[in-house]
Design a protein around this nucleic acid. Sequence first.
DNA 1: AATTAAAATTGGTACGTTCCTTTTGCGAAA
DNA 2: TTTCGCAAAAGGAACGTACCAATTTTAATT
Lengths: 250, 250
Amino acid sequence: MELGPTKEKVVADLVYQRVIKALQNQIDAGKFSDLKLPNERILAEEFQVSRSSIKKALNSLIQRGVVFQKQGAGTFINPLYLKNRPMFDIAGDNVGVTDTFQRNGKRPDIKVIDFNVVPASPEVQESLFLEPGEFVYEIQRLRSFDDQPFMIEDGFVPIKLVPDLTKKNIAGSLYKYLHESRNIAVTRSFLTISADVSTANDQKLLNLKPVEPVGVMEGIFFMDRGTPIEFSHMRLHYKFMRYNTFTLLN
Amino acid sequence: MELGPTKEKVVADLVYQRVIKALQNQIDAGKFSDLKLPNERILAEEFQVSRSSIKKALNSLIQRGVVFQKQGAGTFINPLYLKNRPMFDIAGDNVGVTDTFQRNGKRPDIKVIDFNVVPASPEVQESLFLEPGEFVYEIQRLRSFDDQPFMIEDGFVPIKLVPDLTKKNIAGSLYKYLHESRNIAVTRSFLTISADVSTANDQKLLNLKPVEPVGVMEGIFFMDRGTPIEFSHMRLHYKFMRYNTFTLLN
DNA sequence: AATTAAAATTGGTACGTTCCTTTTGCGAAA
DNA sequence: TTTCGCAAAAGGAACGTACCAATTTTAATT
């Protein structure tokens, strides 16, 4: 699959990735009408790979909620997945809440309300694992869909991690900038989701009636090494907050 | 369910489970002060198990957000985990929302508001994967903490899956009943979390002022085989809805 | 001292084997 | 017909090997 000269980063040459995609396609195409997949040994035979690789691939599909397994019985497609596929596309896909909303071709407008460097408050300091007195960017933004503002975002980023941040970087996707220009990948998040009465400020910015509430998402995003990169507090127009989650009990 | 000598179901005789617990304890005890674990080969040597088993154990800790790995670098403890351990105990632990709230010794009061058998509405039918005309229990309950009602729960369970449900079973933990008496394990859930303006009914039952909102959790719980066992619609006092989630990006 | 290149470290992928445990299904017995 | 027990089917666990890829460390060079 060589297109360009050197880089290109072909992600698809891993066996288990290949199997995942193939199975996913077959499932989406309705190949297994009885909702049951062939057993692992057969799959290994069909794909001409080891059973271990099949296991690894299936494990990934399990985590996504596409299939589930039961010892002694087999591997089955989650009926919910077939019924409600679009939901599953979103489930769990929540890091970069900021970025998550770039869906359906609706490109969100981002308005920078405030952009400063301030000393970290105790809460921020604690959350970002900073020493007392360290400085952070405070980034306040208002996000909209087609002139409908839906989210007030208050984010804090340690300056030591991104010393050269500018208002221009902030106006777009912060994570895209971090990734493309600084090779920082944001790969984990810890979020708390709740609801709250809307404040006067919420009502003004989000165009809410006094009785209408906001959804609140607050959390920490961190990079590969586990270093927190952003503490974010988000207040959303209640009609626009929908958090989908697929959970394995265990 | 015979409690005799033979069964006992010792869950702990699995190698990787043993490793998970040991590592978890060592981490909690602060053994790795530099936040770095020994490499996989060393761990295998120390625990006298194969590297594969170490990998399996570490993988589990990764999913829980306790540690993370980076190729070429090593395995590191998530600093957030150490800082905020109690949060991680709750994260993702959301199936049986009904049951999740039995924490802190505060035993919640459950009041059965309504308990009937009704034909499944289109939405319920769709969600529970039923044929048109099938019947479901409709279970309406109000949950409280120490006289503070916090959740109105409207649940639907197919009668064919639990033909002998009674009001008595419903008054306690439904899932405990299913598990202990019917050997049905609820192991997966798909939830959508949002917020809404409180209705007059909400305000009355949850003791809310008109301006105060409710948190909404709606979703499907299913059992081992992927069969949906309950569709549940929950409206929570906004001060009591806190959903924690740890998410791996990718 | 700074830069660069090689080597060691460390996790990732893939395969294969062996044996165990849980379910399921079938056939024999009651 | 129903029940019971055994064989088969299917996933789970564990081990081990070999080699690959990203990162870090070390050494050599400039």
